[in-house]
């Protein structure tokens, strides 16, 4: 037996006990998407890291050869407004938020504004900021965006905070 293997055995034994505790406490409950209000509870891959735990890039498997993203899979604006808040898959919500960047309607603007602070996954909140930055703004929009960005600077996720601060600096370079 190699010297490192007993340690690995202990590691598995320890993790088994932790996992058992987790399972016993209901950690296997299914989750469903719903109106999100508790930003601090988000646990996606971009959730704020503990200070002693490095953020890691989430590995992604490459799509199969020739895989393309069909136009049919990109929602139209009306669908995107719904998907942005109601789709079960976070990736679908993110895609919808990206689609709304290209629609200058008031409804889409309001949806994005809400997503900045209320979306459950930090990737959604960050993407909503990016989408807002791609839009042309109407009179008065900047005040609403500033308010949303000010709120987002208190986000639990550091990346959302950085993006919000960056957008605020776009409004006020001397900030």
């Amino acid at each position: 037996m190699r010297p490192g293997l007993p340690g690995i055995g202990l590691l598995f034994a320890g993790s088994f006990l932790v996992a058992l505790l987790f399972v016993s406490r209901g950690g296997n409950q299914r989750t469903v998407a719903g109106p999100a209000t508790a930003v601090s509870q988000s646990t996606g891959p971009l959730a704020a890291p503990a200070s002693d735990w490095p953020v890691r890039i989430t590995p992604q498997a490459a799509p199969p050869p020739g895989a393309e993203y069909s136009d049919d899979e990109v929602p139209d604006v009306a669908t995107a407004r719904v998907d942005a808040t109601m789709a079960l898959d976070p990736q679908d919500r993110i895609l919808a938020i990206q689609v709304l960047a290209d629609d200058n309607s008031r409804e889409s603007f309001d949806t994005l504004l809400t997503a900045v602070t209320a979306a459950p996954d930090p990737r959604e909140r960050a993407t909503a900021i990016s989408s807002l930055r791609q839009r042309s703004l109407d009179d008065g929009d900047d005040v609403k965006i500033r308010n949303a960005m000010e709120a987002a600077t208190y986000d639990a996720d550091p990346l959302v905070v950085v993006m919000a601060q960056s957008m605020l600096e776009d409004f006020d370079p001397d900030r």
Binding site: S51, W53, P54, V55, A126, S131, V162
Partner: peptide, 18 residues
């Protein structure tokens, strides 16, 4: 400390459309 370079890479991915 947190992997700051990794965070920057994630920022780029988040803003990939833009």
């Amino acid at each position: 400390h947190a992997d700051f370079g990794g965070q920057v890479e994630k920022l780029a991915r988040i803003q990939s459309k833009e």
